[in-house]
Amino acid sequence: MGCKVLAPMVGKIVKVKVKVGDKVERDQEIFVMESMKLESSVFSPCSGTIKEIKVSEGDRIEEDDLLAIIE
């Protein structure tokens, strides 16, 4: 199992809510991002353990950028 977390839309990472090694459930909030001057949440697409986080707070992201890898 496992999955990749991709940026759902263009914007900026405001907050990273998890760290490497954390266990996450599907639909758990893992990032807060800002897009079109609005904050919204990025939810985990699957359950597992965070293996890697590719972005940090303040990073600009494009749609489909890899944000994190979950195993």
Binding site: M9, D27, S35, M36
Partner: peptide, 15 residues
Amino acid sequence: HQLGQEENRQNYLLM
């Protein structure tokens, strides 16, 4: 966007 996520968290309707 928020109403969409109430039904399905994997739905990002903002754009």
